[in-house]
Amino acid sequence: MRRRAVLKFGAAGVGAFGLTLAVGWWRADGPGALAPVGERPLPLSEMGFRLTDHEGQLVEPSDLIGQPSLVFFGFTYCPDVCPTTLSDISGWLDALAEDADRLNVVFITVDPERDTVDAMAEYVGYFHPAIRGWTGPEDQVAQAVEDFRATYEKVPAEVGGYTMNHTASVFLFDASGDFASTIDYHEPREYAVPKIRRAIEETSEGAT
């Protein structure tokens, strides 16, 4: 117990130092050069929303702490980008083989009106079994999008009522729940998989 606390503290120190460096890089040269640092997702521990997973269980972001996590937004009435994202991620998970068990993978819908728990269950069932589908009340989904510093908007469509524009990036968090990086959907497997593997390996190093 005590050893754990020391480790945690140590990890936090290293994390803080790393973050200082990372923020510097992020501000100066990184993709964050255009967006303020405040645009990065909150740590999972500071997020404040509750949703229901595709098996009907109440879930919250802090449930994900303990393993690295991949989180992304989408909706099941999206014919192109969302199945592509889910199948790309399924491909990454296939490449990770049994290491995929050491990862949380969460698909949060931005269209809770149509994406009920049952709709999410049916949809995620076609992809890698590690992928969880989260939905819930409109205000909780809005809170989730805000906590991730993501965006979404409902756009009227000629047919089918409406479509949704939404942030397409996949957010990668480390095991302590801090934001690590984003992976673009469509990012080639040879870049995406090492990013995820690094997060998993950092977790196992931290545990020994």
Binding site: C78, D80, V81, T151, T163, T167, Y185
Partner: peptide, 20 residues
């Protein structure tokens, strides 16, 4: 009943959009 060519694109802000 209806078929259209749509284009998915991602804005500089990372927003995925779709339009005819």
């Amino acid at each position: 009943k209806m078929l259209e060519i749509h284009r998915s694109s991602t804005t500089a802000e990372g927003l995925s959009t779709m339009a005819p």
